[in-house]
Design a protein around this nucleic acid. Sequence first.
DNA 1: CGAGATTCATGTGAAGTATACCTTTAGGCTTAA
DNA 2: AAGCCTAAAGGTATACTTCACATGAATCTCGTA
Length: 404
Amino acid sequence: MATETNDLPNLFEKYLNKNSIFTNRKFIQTTYIPEKLFHRDEQINTIAGVLAPCLKQEKPSNLFVYGKTGTGKTATLLHITDNLQKIATQRNIPLKVCYINCKLKRVADTEYRLLAQLVKDMGKEVPSTGLPTDDIYTFFFKLLEQQQGLVLLVLDEIDQLVKKAGDEILYNLTRMNSELKHAQISLIGISNDPRFAEQIDPRVKSSLGEEEIMFPPYNALQIQTILRERAAVAMKPDGIGEGVIEKCSAYAAREHGDARRALELLRVAAELAERANASQVTIAHLDLAEKKQEKDKMTELITTQPKQYQVVLLAIFQLGIKESENIFTGEAYELYKTLCPSSGLRPITQRRFSDIMNELDMLGLINAKVISKGRHGRTREIALATTKSLTENLEILLKESLGV
DNA sequence: CGAGATTCATGTGAAGTATACCTTTAGGCTTAA
DNA sequence: AAGCCTAAAGGTATACTTCACATGAATCTCGTA
């Protein structure tokens, strides 16, 4: 690098003059929802049909949407509700859409927090703790009555919420309708797990599952069209090299047709290409991006975990690096206990440790499976979810973050 | 040799505890009439 | 007397602990061939 490291004006100047691969970066971000969604016409029509009564001020059926990650559930729903909302405001029809992702830790993963979040969505604040849940219900209830009209509650990753906090919430929410005079609520549940419906209380299921819609995974060709469409608006026409889109789709199709993953991969590849001053995204960039993406995802996930969780992870990682054989709860816990003092934490009980491992498993940070070793008892068999070199990187990251 | 009993190491459910945070209440102080 | 501030009291959700029981296949036991 010829540039002086602290020659910032020059550096920014160069950046501005540089020929960017992107024309408009925002179109390829996963938060962006395009005007037109491909290969989802059938689902869009059904959902729109279910929700249409909103516009006549009638309560639409509750809706349950399921399909694997990256099959466009959230995008489709938001796309439809956005349009619905627009038309509603145009014609002065009272309609409010609340979208809440139940997976977000410490945001909406319990009954209380979900309600608090709903209240916040309606424009009011409520304390983060201290009040009885019933109070929040009545508060929310009053808000609804004031709202006067239909409220669509979109609960994303609803399976996570129910797993943690039970299905009573859903029951309570659906029951509110019979007591509301000037407002009505409709629930829209989104789940990654198709078996979720079987696990919940039949009463809840019958009311939540008034309509069910399945999102099948995309195949490689479908992902290609999606990528092309996005790339056309987000990047320069000649910004993408031969075969890149194809390979990108193939990656994603292998991962159960996850379109979000494909988009992210393409974006990261393009960013890498740009940073390397390349004029085109090549397959080499794509391969780099795949590695980087995985690392970034894990890093993000890890750094947002509470400290205790991080130490638990550190213990598991260290064991995983040292010995490639399978790790069991006992040894992990022993190591964890020795690790605690150095980061200034009081060790947690094994009971809690077990729960935390379960949560880490659900987050995909580790793979833990309960097995019976016969005479030698029952335990979890823990395997790392990442390659060895990545694990080593993450271990260092954890150590830094814990100040060890 | 095989069927059933035993055993181990930890999973897992229920109930209790600690902590952090909230509202309400009561007292004390200030202020203004 | 009314108004305002503060501290104590009383209440809640959540993370964690404690207690107690559940699990499930490798291993042991013992009767039988």
